[in-house]
Design a protein around this nucleic acid. Sequence first.
DNA 1: GCTTGACCTCAAGTCCACTTGAAGTGGCAG
DNA 2: CTGCCACTTCAAGTGGACTTGAGGTCAAGC
Lengths: 147, 147
Amino acid sequence: MRELDIAEVAERSGVPASTLRYYEEKGLVAPIGRRGLRRVFDAGVLDRLALVSLGRIAGFSLEEITRMFAPDGRPRIDRTALVARADELDQRIRRLQSVSRGLRHAAACKAPSHMECPSFRRILKAAADGALERPGGKKPKARKARA
Amino acid sequence: MRELDIAEVAERSGVPASTLRYYEEKGLVAPIGRRGLRRVFDAGVLDRLALVSLGRIAGFSLEEITRMFAPDGRPRIDRTALVARADELDQRIRRLQSVSRGLRHAAACKAPSHMECPSFRRILKAAADGALERPGGKKPKARKARA
DNA sequence: GCTTGACCTCAAGTCCACTTGAAGTGGCAG
DNA sequence: CTGCCACTTCAAGTGGACTTGAGGTCAAGC
């Protein structure tokens, strides 16, 4: 079991030391001890951080991630919740694909105004429709689309 | 050309009046005039807002959106930049797909610890590798992955 | 033993996209 | 003409995720 000091963890994970302290405060990671004042981490923290990273990318808040894989300390996860999240993520992915198509269309379309193009409008709508009700917390935007 | 008051725009777009004022301040939308103090919007603002929404979903900051489709006022867009953005977005989508797979795998995998599973580790790596260098501004996370 | 400087703590600051609140204005129904 | 209240302005507040700064500690090399 390798012991790492905070600078090594920072270097190997790419997560700044200040962030590591912040994560510790939030209960996302924990040093296995101290050498004087200095934190001593187990190399396993790198996996932990990778998991945090995964969660962040998936759109979870730190708070959610904390609850997810560390109610006690083990990476215990509610499998049902995970699948639900994956479903949400897939939904988001589909919208992003719409947006990507929209961007490419906008780049290619010769119409003077993109808004005149039916296919662009359709894409726009597809992307916008999903804009409501975000889980992770990126952009709720519209709660009552049309009265 | 229909004229809308701020409440109508808010209702039809789902964007709160406070946000519309904020957007105006940021140069994202503009009323065509005033009736007394009150803003009067052209119905076209709805398209504009849809475009803003599209941009937000794509991960652009308001600042970027402003520059993108309104250097002067028309929806002038740099097509090359758009394609570049679409490419970035596709890259992001691929990472998200990795994350989705990771979540589903975590939910299904019977290994006591996910970290023991090679396929999970692979997925994790795929997701993490792209975690650097974000455009829109969601999470740069690591600037110097490994020294 | 002394200096060095990486590490520590804690409070405050930053960024982004908004939201909220207080105080004021004025269009329009009655 | 009056009064209501939807609209206005401007300043300040919010929240999440960090970062920064001031001031302090201590392990280690000289």
